[in-house]
Amino acid sequence: MRTPGGLVKRLGRAVLWLLVLVLLLRGVASVMEPRRPGAVAATAKPAVASWPDDEVRAFASDFARAYLTYNAKDPEASESAIRAFVGPELASSVVPEYGEDAPRRAVGSVSVARVLRVDDSRALVTVAAAATGGTRYLTVPVARDARGGLVVSDLPSLAAPPTLASAPQMSGESLPASERAPIEDVVSRFLTAYLAGDAGELSFFTPTGVRIGALAAEHELVDVTSLALVAPAQGRVREVMATVRAKDAATGATYGLRYRLQLVREDRWLVAAVNSSKKAG
């Protein structure tokens, strides 16, 4: 005979087997289900600073200024300024030796003329310094250590200036006879306002949407000595070279100047650009 206790035991076994079956089915389903690849966070690679960089150029420029400066009244200050850029091994040999009657030397502007990368941590930086007696070119050896520190690693050297080039003067073509008078007129009036620093007047001679700044210091247009086409006349655009004489209102000095002007024809000739490679439409 089946007793209530036996029925409960059988029912319990059935429930247990059912639970085991559910767990097995879930396990199989999880194995068979395609897995999505985990998202990988994109990390920006740190930018690798170029060598030699602007900091190296500035460092070499500061050394050149100190090296070429001399104050006979305080020579120790000049020496200290130079030694601040070098290590102990160069401290006794890097400072220039001056005679007793050596005049004072000063340095104005400095600029980097050229840079030579020797390897990953050394470079030769040639600096042009406007010093007393003329511009001097000084090549400065600069090295960088593992911490990023900079040092003048060897004695500098005096360098030659760039060789003066022999370049032919740009030749031009004559303006078409039918265009010469109106182009000469707009060029003369435009340059009068441009040299005088009259920005408001310039807007009358430029196309809509084009803004050309005027000189900051006032000059007077004396005359336009020549006007020629830089490129053959084409469409409604003309590239002209204007040779002028201009007088500085403050000093009275007269300069010979040459401007490359881009003109565009609308209802009249207008100046679209000054000394620019920009092309008008």
Rank of each mutant, 00 (worst) to 15 (best):
G5M: 12
V8C: 01
L21V: 13
L23G: 15
L23Q: 15
L24G: 15
L25A: 13
A29C: 05
S30G: 07
M32W: 09
G38A: 15
A44E: 15
A47S: 12
F59C: 03
T69A: 04
A72P: 15
D74S: 12
E79C: 06
E79P: 02
V86Y: 05
G87K: 05
E89L: 09
V95K: 01
G99I: 07
E100S: 14
E100T: 14
D101A: 13
S111D: 12
S111M: 09
A113G: 09
R114P: 00
R117D: 07
A123G: 05
V125Y: 00
A128G: 05
A129P: 08
T135F: 03
R136L: 09
R147K: 12
V151G: 06
D154F: 05
P156H: 09
P162N: 13
S166T: 14
P168D: 13
M170S: 13
M170L: 15
S171N: 07
G172P: 04
G172W: 01
E173T: 12
R180I: 02
A181Q: 12
L195G: 04
G200Y: 00
E201F: 09
E201G: 03
F204H: 13
G209K: 11
L221K: 00
V222D: 02
L229S: 04
T243G: 05
A249M: 14
T251I: 06
R260T: 09
Q262C: 10
L263N: 03
E266H: 08
D267H: 11
V274G: 01
V274T: 06
G281T: 13
